[in-house]
């Protein structure tokens, strides 16, 4: 039994219209521009074939931007995923005050990223609260501030990013946990499975679709980290990321829009490979039912 073809298309219509009207042109435009030497504000442009892509792959700035982006993605996603899942499990049980905790954990996610970045710039400053706290527990802090040191800047921003996004993913996990039928736990309890066993044999497998969503969306977002960098370091101290590179080359310091578009598509291919890998990894086994 399945949906009729016409109903299926009818249901897809909102996206078809939105995509066709607003996204198709920009997406195709930027793809085509990637094969030209188009400079913003210049009347002339020429086809250059794959030249931009070749140049990018041997551009040390772009390569190091990609490296930083990878560090950012690989360094944040495990933390964000594990912490947000733990928070969801913590707050999934009924106990008084649960709603309050949920709201509290969620607040960073709903605050404007620009504002959060400004606040953390001040917290990470020389003599700021973070440095004070770190010194209190006996850690050495970078002399001129966390964001003024190549050894700490990117990690400081990553820590902020984890802090900021766990609330949202906690919420997603909470909704996913609700789709798991209670009977399964009851059955497991009767057959004597402990909490940990239940988590690994019931919760985690059944959370797969949710997990997939969290991983894919978080990767896509993290690969495109920009606003934090823009507000906090402007790409200095080894915090230049791929999108910041695209922004700087295409829109500000240089107007090499063709080059920047090509960089965007290289990034897109990387994100796509990463996402497909995640799909394949999590799809390998059929769902329990």
């Amino acid at each position: 039994m399945r949906l009729s073809r016409s109903t299926a298309w009818l249901l897809a219509l909102p996206w078809l219209i939105t995509f066709g009207a607003f996204w198709l042109f920009p997406v195709i435009y930027s793809l085509i521009v990637g094969f030209t030497d188009y400079q913003l504000l210049e009347p002339e442009w020429h086809w250059v074939g794959l030249e931009n892509f070749k140049q990018l792959l041997s551009d040390p700035d772009f390569i190091s931007a990609l490296e930083n982006t990878f560090i950012f993605v690989i360094g944040t996603i495990p933390f964000t995923t594990v912490i947000s899942l733990a928070m969801a499990l913590l707050l999934n049980r009924k106990f008084p005050g649960r709603g309050l905790f949920r709201s509290g954990y969620f607040v960073p996610s709903i605050t404007s990223l620009v504002v959060i970045s400004l606040i953390f710039t001040s917290l990470y400053q020389r003599g700021g609260y973070v440095a004070m706290l770190a010194e209190m527990i006996g850690l050495t802090t970078p002399e001129y501030g966390f964001l003024q040191d190549s050894g700490t800047a990117l990690y400081a921003i990553m820590a902020m990013d984890v802090w900021m996004s766990v609330g949202y993913y906690m919420l997603v996990f909470l909704s996913g946990l609700k789709a798991i039928p209670d009977e399964l736990y009851e059955a497991a309890e009767i057959s004597g499975a402990g909490r940990i066993r239940q988590f690994f044999s019931i919760t985690l497998p059944l959370l797969k679709p949710t997990m997939l969503f969290v991983l894919v969306i978080n990767s896509i977002k993290s690969f495109q980290v920009f606003i934090e960098i823009f507000v906090m370091t402007k790409g200095k101290f080894d915090t230049m990321t791929a999108v910041y590179f695209i922004y700087e080359r295409g829109l500000t310091t240089e107007f090499a829009f063709g080059y920047a578009s090509a960089a965007a598509y290289i990034l897109l291919i990387i994100i796509a490979i990463f996402s497909v890998a995640q799909f394949l990894l999590l799809r390998r086994k059929a769902p329990l039912w």
């Binding site: 400053q125 020389r126 003599g127 002399e143 001129y144 501030g145 964001l147 003024q148």
Partner: peptide, 8 residues
């Protein structure tokens, strides 16, 4: 010198 960003 005391080194910090302009704001600092």
């Amino acid at each position: 010198g005391y080194v910090a960003n302009q704001r600092g």
